[in-house]
């Protein structure tokens, strides 16, 4: 990912009101981490599993934060129980910022990732979590704002799956 795309993504998260990010690091979007870490307006919380990235974010939202979870798409599978309980059953809006491995738009597509990519969106759909694939920076600010607004309105997690230029 080009550095300016990372800056644009972080700026878009801030513009949408995100002030709390839990994460497990991965490869494709990792350039956003130093930017978030150095930003005094966003609390960055490292975790050991995407399952707790979701529950911690849910608690922060109930406590007044606007939270995002940054994860690799494998994290969708790891956190699906937390998404169902803390996200859907409790009804807590969380923005899922997902590095989308293995989809058509993944520029690092490989046999390692293809199965993950094939099943990521069906699992999100099965959980009732609406999602969009984002391939470039066009209208990124608007897309992130729309996702957060929709998450709040639905009282549900919403997923943005980053691929294309974000996976280069």
């Amino acid at each position: 990912m080009e550095p300016q795309l990372a800056e644009q993504l972080v700026s878009s998260l801030k513009g949408a009101g995100i002030d709390f990010v839990t994460f497990l690091p991965e490869t494709r979007l990792s350039q956003i981490l130093p930017l978030i870490r150095d930003d005094p307006d966003i609390e960055l919380v490292p975790v050991s599993s995407e399952a707790e990235a979701v529950t911690i974010a849910a608690g922060a939202v109930l406590g007044g934060k606007q939270a995002a979870v940054y994860m690799e798409s494998t994290g969708i599978f790891v956190s699906s129980y937390s998404l169902l309980i803390a996200g859907k059953s409790l009804g807590v809006p969380i923005l899922l910022v997902v590095a989308f491995l293995g989809g058509f738009e993944d520029q690092r597509q490989s046999f390692l990732y293809a199965n993950i990519g094939k099943h990521s969106i069906p699992v999100l759909n099965g959980l009732g979590i609406e999602n969009r694939v984002i391939e470039d920076g066009a209208n990124l600010e608007s897309k992130v704002k729309e996702a957060v607004r929709t998450a709040n309105a639905q009282r549900s997690p919403i997923a943005l799956l980053f691929a294309g230029e974000f996976s280069s």
């Binding site: 707790e52 979701v54 608690g59 059953s89």
Partner: peptide, 21 residues
Amino acid sequence: NLLVGNMGCAIGVGVGLALAL
């Protein structure tokens, strides 16, 4: 009281609350 009605979530939700408040 937030009675999170499933196993494995109470600590995480609690940590999120503790950080936010």
